[in-house]
Design a protein around this nucleic acid. Structure first.
Length: 318
DNA sequence: AAGGGACTCAACCGCTTCGAA
DNA sequence: GTTCGAAGCGGTTGAGTCCCT
C-alpha cells in the first residue's frame, strides 16, 4: 500500500556510493551539468535511481561543499535561522552556501538540539519568557513574507544595476531569484574543483580501494576553491516553522553570550529587519546591506558583519 | 581485549511543489 | 483547469565508528 518507491526497478543499487560511481557521476555532470536527473542513470550506466544521483551530487560531490566541523559563526547562524524559519533546512542552507541542507539538518539534530535543550532546561526555572507562542507564530509568518521580499529586492537590485560580473567567490554560479544556482559552464575553468574531486577520488580509490565508503568522504573532502553553490531553494508554502524544535529566545540569548546579552530577545527579528527596512542607523550598516544584497564578497563575512551591525544598531535604538 | 551503548552522517523514503502538456 | 512526471525537501533509518565499562 502507499506510494511505490521512486525506483522499484530490479537492479537499482542502494546503499553507500563507491568511488567508481562517484567518478562516473562527477564526470557526467562535468560534461553536461546537473539537472535532468532522470536521464543520468541511463546515460551513465549507473545502477542508481535519479534521486540517489541528485542527492549524491548535492550533498556530497558538488563543488564548494565545506565539510568538517562547523564554526562558531555557522553554529550561531543556524540557531538564529532555525529560530526564525523553523526546520526549513534548504532555506537555512541558502544562508550558508558551503553547507548542504542535509549537513545542517544532521548538525542540528545531533549537536545543536541537545545543546539548546541543555541550556533551556537550565533556564526553565526562571520563566523569563520573551515571547508568547502566538507571537512566535506571527513572527514566523512575518519573516517568511519578509524573506520573499528580500529575494525580490535582491533580484531587482541586480537587474537594475545590470550586474554582469559574477561575485568573485561564487565561480560559476548565477544570481537567480536572490539565490545562486548552478549555471552550465560555457567558457573556461569551470568545474576546477570537480576535476580536483575526480583526481582525489582516483587517488583515494587507488590507495584505499579496499576501505569502506567512508574513505570517499576523505578523498572528496574538497576545499571550497571556487564555488559556494546552494540548491536554489526558495521559501515555500507550507512551513512548519515554530515547531517543537524551535528555539526559545532564552536559549539564543544564553548561547550567544556577549553578543546578545545586552539586547532584547527580538534580536532575531531585528537581524532581518535590517534586510528590508530602512531603519539602519549608520552608513556602514547600509553599505554592508548593499553588499549583501548584491551578493558581493564572502557571504560569510558579510552575514556576520550584518548580524553584528544589527545587534549594535538595535542597541543604539534603545 | 571485548562487548555494548551512544553518536555520526550518508542515504533512503515519501510527501509536496512546480511546470509542461 | 486538470493531469502527470520530475525535482525538491524534510524526516527517518541504519551502517560504521567511537567511547566507556
Amino acid at each position: 500500500m502507499g506510494r511505490p518507491p521512486c525506483c522499484d526497478k530490479v537492479g537499482v543499487k542502494k546503499g553507500p556510493w563507491t568511488p567508481e560511481e562517484d567518478i562516473i557521476l562527477v564526470s557526467y555532470i562535468q560534461e553536461h551539468g546537473p539537472g535532468n536527473w532522470r536521464s543520468i542513470p541511463s546515460n551513465t550506466g549507473l545502477l542508481r535511481c535519479s534521486k540517489s544521483c541528485r542527492l549524491r551530487w548535492t550533498n556530497y560531490l558538488r563543488p564548494g561543499i565545506k565539510r568538517g566541523n562547523f564554526t562558531e559563526h555557522e553554529e550561531k547562524m543556524i540557531i538564529h535561522l532555525q529560530a526564525l524559519l523553523g526546520n526549513r533546512w534548504a532555506a537555512i542552507a541558502s544562508y550558508l552556501p558551503q553547507r548542504t541542507d542535509n549537513d545542517i539538518k544532521n548538525y542540528w539534530n545531533t549537536h545543536l538540539k541537545k545543546k539548546l535543550k541543555k541550556l533551556q532546561t537550565g533556564l526553565d526555572g526562571k520563566n523569563r519568557d520573551g515571547f508568547s507562542s502566538s507571537q512566535q507564530i506571527s513572527k514566523g509568518q512575518w519573516e517568511r513574507r519578509l524573506q520573499t521580499d528580500i529575494n525580490m529586492a535582491r533580484q531587482a537590485l541586480c537587474e537594475a544595476l545590470s550586474l554582469e560580473e559574477k561575485p568573485s567567490n561564487l565561480g560559476d554560479l548565477k544570481a537567480s531569484n536572490g539565490y545562486y544556482s548552478y549555471m552550465k559552464p560555457t567558457q573556461t575553468s569551470t568545474y576546477a574543483s570537480s576535476t580536483e574531486n575526480i583526481s582525489r577520488l582516483l587517488q583515494g580509490w587507488m590507495k584505499n580501494s579496499t576501505k569502506s565508503s567512508k574513505t570517499t568522504s576523505e578523498t572528496t573532502q574538497n576545499s571550497s576553491t571556487n564555488v559556494g553553490g546552494t540548491d536554489s531553494t526558495s521559501s515555500q508554502g507550507t512551513p512548519s516553522a515554530a515547531n517543537n524544535d524551535t528555539v526559545s529566545p532564552d536559549s539564543l540569548e544564553s548561547l550567544f553570550g556577549d553578543v546578545s546579552q545586552s539586547v532584547s530577545p527580538d534580536d532575531t527579528v531585528n537581524f532581518f529587519q535590517y534586510e528590508s527596512k530602512p531603519i539602519l542607523g549608520s552608513e556602514a550598516s547600509l553599505s554592508l546591506l548593499e553588499k549583501w544584497l548584491l551578493g558581493e564578497g564572502s557571504a560569510h563575512g558579510h552575514e556576520e558583519d550584518l548580524m553584528e551591525a544589527s545587534l549594535r544598531d538595535t542597541a543604539e535604538l534603545f
